[in-house]
Amino acid sequence: MGLLKRELRLLLRSPAEVVQSLLFGVLVVALFPLAITPDPDVLRQLSVGLIWVVTLLTSLLAADRSLLSDFEDGSLEQMVLGVAPLWWVCLVKSVGHWLTALLPLIVITPLLGMMLAMTSETMLWLMASLLVGTPVLSLFCVLGAMMTLGLNRGGALLLVILMPFLVPPLVLGTQWAMTLGQPFYGYLLAGLLCVSLMTLPFATASVARIAVGR
């Protein structure tokens, strides 16, 4: 529990990171009407997919940040050596990533939806799909960030590594929102979340041992 408190305290003391994620989301969404067309009918059709893609990119952008400072000042090493089980540390890191990068974006989804002329019903299902789907993104992003720790290659490598794994939540999430909550996709997305929650922290923990040993 102490770890979770620490993560939240770090989060509250650096609101700039939250603001950065929010700004990124809003600015990228603002680019689409400019690049494609201001026609609300076209934007409405594209809106669910666009917001999901923007969320995915925000998640990748924040992934490096979530571990780098802990890695550089040695806290990560202490966590690997410490008493708390390492999978729990990794889970907490994912929660921290989700709270800083993704939850704020989900909260302002209505704003993004307005910019893309969404109907309120689609918007509700989009928010539901983001709420269920984005934790999967966070879990994978922390795993990927752990793999690339200390390699100094930046975000492109992370995208190459993670892209295949982000496809299922993206596909299921957008389909769920676009079919206005067809339960088939909802169950699958929830199942994906459960499986990811149960397995990925352990994979991340094994990579953390490798990263610290490097």
């Binding site: 795993l143 793999m147 295949p164 496809v167 299921l172 088939f184 699958l188 994979a203």
Partner: peptide, 21 residues
Amino acid sequence: AVLAVVGLINLPIIKFSVDWW
């Protein structure tokens, strides 16, 4: 190696999600 193994476990998930899509 961890990446390859996680990918192997994910391969059916990716395949099915794309199929359903």
